[in-house]
Design a protein around this nucleic acid. Structure first.
Lengths: 208, 208
DNA sequence: GTCTATATTTAGATAGAC
DNA sequence: GTCTATCTAAATATAGAC
């Protein structure tokens, strides 16, 4: 009884914020109406402005939380001096896929917002990629495979692309014949193991 | 004189449609205002409704054109019985990268619209992936590498992911240290050669 | 076909009672 | 803090002159 009480006893404010997160993730800023958020939260429309002053303000709050989650799960991995290239890839892919399996709308949302430099977050974005590009991972790639003329940038694009894409094009896959017997989650679990293997094959394999 | 006349003599209708394409690609449906389109086209606002009846109608028209372009550049490649696996990948990547180097907003636009099953196009989308999944390419992968337990779906996800991602996360790359000396276009030209090589390495390389 | 002016609808925000 | 009712602004769409 006590437990459920606590769960139910979320204050209106966090109630709205969670609802906003859900709807913004799904529809983006322009596609979301404040009435959608109120409905989703089961709260009165006026309370959105009471607690958050404006739709834009609420959006920025929510977006910063999503970005923080997105980045915290990746940056530190690439900067750990104690792990190998392969280990970094394994940990990164594992963490990212876990995150997206629970919140599959994050990748598309993040990419959309990044490509709309209009709304804040420029600092966050820039910082993130500066960090990855100056990361220990980047240096390790340069040292180990620089002589093969594989630019680390390509490797990073590949890892991120292979990791994110299934969640970006997921709607396309729904009608896929080959996926009927094997469900999406199973495939993603497979990819946790395979993406590191594939990436190492690329690095070790023949270059032109 | 005659030539420029012809170029200038585009009728208002196609003028508006081209402007709409530009703006919708950049901002999406909800983010686009009809005034933006009118401004971009240099035409009167009322003419949008005169020629296209509604914003929604214009959007669907434009979207279908974009989707057609997107699909025509990929489906036939995967169904050509005369080409090898490697050749199919080479041609596909080449065509896709050419398309996106000229119209870099297409990938994000298409993924967004697909994930909004709200607006039409369900037929197109479903058809596309049924086609790829029942394609000659799919069968070839199954025959040649099925014994290695590499599901063709994974391979397709990887190829598409590696091809599209640079255009999805492009904004992220602008601040990238490693890309200062090498510009984006150069990298994409490199990827035309590398993605097929990498993919073959994955297929031939060690599996768990 | 094109324009100006205006009608209509939608959506964000607020006032004021409770 | 919460709700109803309402204001205001923005955006789509149309009417009617030219």
């Amino acid at each position: 009884m006590g437990k459920e009480e606590i769960i139910e006893r979320q204050c209106t404010e966090s109630n709205i914020k969670e609802a906003a997160k859900t709807v913004f993730l799904k529809k983006g800023f322009a596609g979301t109406k404040t009435r959608d958020i109120a409905d989703q939260a089961g709260e009165n429309l006026a309370l959105i402005n009471y607690y958050f002053r404006s739709k834009k303000n609420l959006f920025q709050l929510v977006m910063q939380e999503i970005f923080a989650e997105f980045m915290e799960s990746s940056i530190p991995v690439f900067n750990d001096p104690k792990t190998t290239i392969r280990e970094k890839i394994e940990i990164f892919v594992d963490k990212q896929l876990d995150l997206y399996m629970h919140q599959p709308d994050i990748p598309l949302f993040v990419l959309n917002e990044i490509n709309e430099n209009s709304r804040c977050l420029d600092q966050m974005t820039q910082n993130k990629h500066e960090l990855i590009m100056q990361s220990v991972f980047h240096s390790q790639l340069e040292i180990e495979y620089g002589h093969k003329k594989i630019h680390p940038e390509h490797v990073i694009m590949n890892i991120v692309g292979m990791t994110l894409y299934p969640f970006l094009g997921r709607a396309m896959m729904n009608g896929m014949k080959g996926c009927e017997d094997m469900n999406f989650e199973t495939m993603m679990l497979e990819r946790k193991k395979l993406i590191p293997i594939w990436t190492m094959s690329m690095l070790e394999g023949p270059q032109e």
